[in-house]
């Protein structure tokens, strides 16, 4: 199971790196979204995958009855998803505003803050 998830993470990272190497900033953002999901899967798999029960403690007991899935990676992934959601919502809005203002999404043409020529770069 871990192997399968590992392969999946690898494929996702490869795809997102491909996207992130594009000059189009929107593609870059899509690559980021994909790679952030790969990171979430990594955390999830790092907490060991077990085909067990959900980590719920029955009414009246202090500990789960049998072996249950690891709850911590789930909490971490949830936090990461929530944060990622906020960040990517912001990033998409920013890219949209930039496109409206600068009229381009090609990162090579975005040189306003660092004009060509003056510093030879």
């Amino acid at each position: 199971m871990e192997l399968l998830v590992a392969v999946m993470v690898g494929v996702m990272v490869a795809a997102s790196v491909h996207l992130m190497l594009a000059r189009n900033v929107l593609r870059f953002i899509f690559g980021l979204i994909l790679i952030s999901n790969a990171a979430n899967l990594t955390i999830f798999a790092a907490g060991r995958l077990t085909p067990e029960r959900p980590p719920l403690i029955p009414e009246g007991a202090d500990a789960p009855a049998a072996q249950v899935a690891n709850a911590l990676p789930q909490a971490l992934v949830l936090t990461a998803i929530v944060i990622g959601f906020g960040l990517f919502a912001f990033a998409l809005t920013l890219v949209y505003r930039t496109y409206q203002t600068l009229g381009t999404l090609n990162s090579d043409e975005m040189r306003l803050a660092e004009p060509r020529g003056e510093d030879g770069s």
Binding site: G86, A89, F90, T93, Y96, R97, Q100
Partner: peptide
């Protein structure tokens, strides 16, 4: 609040 802030701002633009 934050979702509506974002969505309304995007809708208006």
């Amino acid at each position: 609040g934050s979702i509506l802030t974002l969505v309304l701002a995007l809708e208006e633009e």
